[in-house]
Deep mutational scan, measured.
Amino acid sequence: NRLGIIYEIQGMKAVVLTSEGEFLIIRRRKDMKVGQQVSFENEDIYNV
């Protein structure tokens, strides 16, 4: 599992900021809110 803070939500995608200072786009889940810490898997990351 990886951890990140939700920075922005766009439709079915969420932008998270990881503890390494990396911004990633992941698959959104219904319970996500901006500012929330979430765990996610590598499979949830969109390749940009």
Rank of each mutant, 00 (worst) to 15 (best):
I45H: 03
E41I: 08
K13Y: 11
E43Y: 02
V15W: 12
K33E: 05
D31V: 04
Y7Q: 13
G35D: 03
V48H: 11
K30N: 15
L17W: 12
N42W: 12
V38L: 05
Y7S: 05
N47I: 11
Q36N: 11
I9A: 02
E20M: 05
M12G: 14
K33S: 05
S19P: 09
G4Q: 01
M32K: 01
R29M: 09
I6N: 00
M32Q: 09
E43G: 04
N42C: 11
G21H: 03
I5E: 04
Q10M: 14
K13L: 07
G35I: 00
G4E: 01
F40T: 03
Q10W: 15
V15H: 05
T18K: 01
A14T: 05
M12V: 13
R2F: 09
D44Y: 05
E41R: 11
D31P: 09
I45E: 09
V15F: 09
G11N: 11
Q36I: 12
Q37N: 08
Y7L: 14
I6V: 12
I5S: 03
T18M: 03
I6P: 00
M32D: 07
S39M: 09
I5V: 13
E43L: 02
I9P: 00
E20W: 04
S19R: 11
A14D: 00
N1H: 12
S19Y: 08
N1K: 08
K30Q: 15
E43D: 10
R2K: 12
E43Q: 03
V34L: 13
K13D: 06
I6L: 04
E20K: 03
V15D: 01
D44M: 02
N47E: 14
R29Y: 14
F40I: 06
R2W: 08
R27S: 11
L24T: 06
R29S: 09
M32I: 04
R28C: 15
E22C: 13
E22I: 11
K33Y: 08
Q10T: 05
R2I: 13
E20C: 10
Q36P: 00
K30L: 15
E41T: 10
I45L: 06
V16W: 00
L17F: 08
N42E: 14
V34W: 04
D31R: 08
G4I: 02
K33R: 07
V38K: 01
E8I: 09
Q37M: 13
V34E: 03
N1M: 10
G11Y: 08
Q37E: 14
R27K: 12
I45F: 03
G11I: 04
N47G: 13
G11V: 05
V16D: 00
L3H: 11
E22L: 07
N1R: 11
E43W: 02
K30A: 15
Y46H: 09
V15P: 00
I25D: 07
A14M: 07
R27T: 14
F40S: 02
N42M: 09
Y46F: 13
E8F: 14
V16R: 00
F40M: 08
L24Q: 09
T18H: 01
N47W: 12
K13G: 06
V15G: 05
K13P: 00
Y7P: 00
A14S: 04
M12D: 15
S19V: 05
G4M: 02
E20R: 04
G4C: 03
L3R: 10
F23C: 12
V16T: 02
G21K: 07
G35A: 04
G21A: 03
G4P: 01
N47K: 03
N1T: 14
Q36K: 10
K33T: 05
M12R: 14
Y46M: 12
V34N: 03
Q37C: 08
V16M: 03
N1Y: 13
L17E: 06
V48F: 04
K33W: 04
R29E: 12
L17V: 09
Y46W: 08
D44E: 07
Q36G: 02
A14V: 08
R29W: 06
S39Y: 11
N47H: 13
F23G: 01
S19C: 12
E22D: 11
K30F: 05
E8V: 13
L17H: 07
G11H: 10
F23Q: 08
E22N: 08
R29V: 11
Y46I: 14
A14C: 09
D31Y: 14
R28F: 15
V16G: 01
E8L: 13
E22Y: 11
R29K: 14
E8R: 10
F40G: 01
N1F: 14
V16H: 00
I26W: 00
N1L: 15
Y46S: 12
I5A: 04
M12Y: 14
R28V: 15
A14P: 00
E20I: 07
K33V: 06
K33N: 07
K30H: 15
M12P: 15
M32S: 05
G21N: 14
V38E: 01
A14Y: 11
Q36R: 10
F40Q: 01
G35T: 02
Q10A: 07
I26V: 07
M12T: 14
E8G: 12
N1V: 13
I45Q: 04
T18E: 02
G21C: 12
R27D: 08
Y7K: 14
L24I: 12
I25R: 06
I25W: 06
